[in-house]
Structure formats: C-alpha cells, structure tokens
Amino acid sequence: MDKLGVITSFIHNIIVFNIPLLYGTVGEIVVEKSGSLNLGVEGTMAVGAIFGYIFGCYANSLGVGILVAFLAGAIFGLLFAALTVSFQANQNITGLTLTTFGLGIYFFVGNSVKSTGWPVMADYENVKEGFADIDIPLLSDIPLIGRGIFSHNLLVYLGIIIAVAVWWYLKHTSLGLRLRAIGENPAAADSVGINVNRMKYIHICLGCGIMGIGGYYMGLNMSGSFNSSCWINGYGWIAVALVIFANWSPAVAIFGTFVFGFFNTLRVSGTSIAAAFPETLGWLADIPAQMYQALPFIITAVVLVVTSIRNKRGSSGLPAALGLNYFREDR
C-alpha cells in the first residue's frame, strides 16, 4: 500500500472500530449523571448486540436492528433501575451481575440461534447496504483525510449526532439541568419538586438503550460472525473508563474516543505503519500489543487520580451522589 493510503486507512480505522466506545460512553454518562454507577455496560452492549443483530437480519432492516438493540439495552436499564432505584439494591453488585447475565444471554441466545442456522449478514441486503460507507459530498474528496474522516457508515454519523445531542441536552436544557441536580444531590432536587425516581428510571433506560446500539454496531462491524469470543470483547469496560477520561462530558467523549481509538488502532496497524515509514516510525513495530491494550486503563487511572486531586477545587464532572442510592424516607 502506498504511504498516503496507509495514513488514510489508519484514520478511517480509528473511527470505524471505535465509535461503539462512544455509544457505550455517552450511554453511561447519561446513566451516571443521574447518580447511578452502572458497571453492566459490557453486558448491556452484549444483549443489544445479539438481539439487534438477529432481529435486524430477520427483518432485513438496519432500522429494526437499531430499534431492537435500543430496546434490549433499555430493558436491561429497566432491570437495573427497578433493582437499584425501587428496590434499593447495591449498584456495584447489580451492575456486575448485569454483565454476567448479559454475557450469559448473549451466548445462550447466540448458540441457540446458531444451532438452527445463523443469519449471515451478507445475505441480508438492506442490513449490509445500510451499514455500507456513505460519502459526504465534497468533504470526502479532500486528499489524505477525506476518505478517512468523511466516508463512514450510518451508525458512525448517528453516534456523533447522539453524542452532540446528549451534550446539548445536559448542558442547555432545563431537563438536563434537573438531571444533573439529581446526580449531585437527589434530596435537594426532590425538595424543589423534581420527581427523582421517574427521572432516574427514564435516564437509566435511555442511557442503556444507547449502549445497546453500540453493541449492535460491534456485531455489524464483525460482519455478524458469531464464535466463542463475544463481539463486545471488553469495550464496555473501556467505555466505563472513557467516561472518567471525558470528565462526564459527551463532547469530550468524542475526543476521548479518538484518543483511545488511536492507541487501539495502532495495536492493529502499528506494523503496517512501521513498514510504510521504516526510518521514522520503524520503532512502532517493537511496542507490545498488550501495552496498547492496557493504555486506556493506565491513562484513565492517571486521569482519575489527577481529577480527584483537583476535585477539592470543584472542577470535576463526577456527580457527587454517584453510586449512592436515594431513599426518600431518609431525608
């Protein structure tokens, strides 16, 4: 491959392989802003993936797939909300169980369907074509970066739109303000007449639904080939980390997705870049793959420590009531 082509495909891959992270992260930001720490992102993405993919293929429609993935995620959110908001169960335990449960469902449903005949993505025109790259006119013709940045599938654009919309919603609408108030101090929010439990239910379901779409994306990106390793493959956990890196802002999450994505993509295509530029970037081939895999978590750990030091000055986006259940009678 020519040198310019290597760069273009590198940029393209950063986006195409890592947008699911953005879905997971934006979804988790919505959930966490309501004061709930949901550690079940991995499981929620997994159920969104499996149900979205299967139903999307059966209906031969990308739209149906997206809708089912959203609903599957939202139902998981409902489960989480019922247990932690209404039943006052511990959020960490519920979230971790959601992950075990979700991965269990993923493999159970996947294997059951596989035994009767797995739907192959290539057979479903509308799904396949719906997921094909769409060129943005003019912009995609820019040399070097055009094909890398402005030629992507529908779900990439949708992910960016959702991230921007959620950012605007949290920052500039009164509902968003109320949501943030609940995450900071539910008792105070309650005392000014906000229905805390209803807001929590709605946003936990909404956030988990967004995660579900991200899962569906991952399934499509693997061309729907189902085997012994889950499509989500740890992305849900990276999303939990990315929320912290993004300081609970969906706009920063877009940037963060590309930072994490940059390293993630270097892991895959580091050798081809090293081969294209042996003099300047030859050393890239020597970095172990596990270093790239650990990097998101190392960076996040550092960010977590730095923000906690700064937090004393009140500049962090960490919701103050994160992880704590709100029991109305305790006011």
Partner: peptide, 8 residues
C-alpha cells in the same frame, strides 16, 4: 452460558 444466566 446458561449457568451465567441462571446466576444472574
């Protein structure tokens, strides 16, 4: 995977 589901 059924055990994971059941555990959940």
């Amino acid at each position: 995977s059924f055990a994971n589901m059941l555990q959940g």
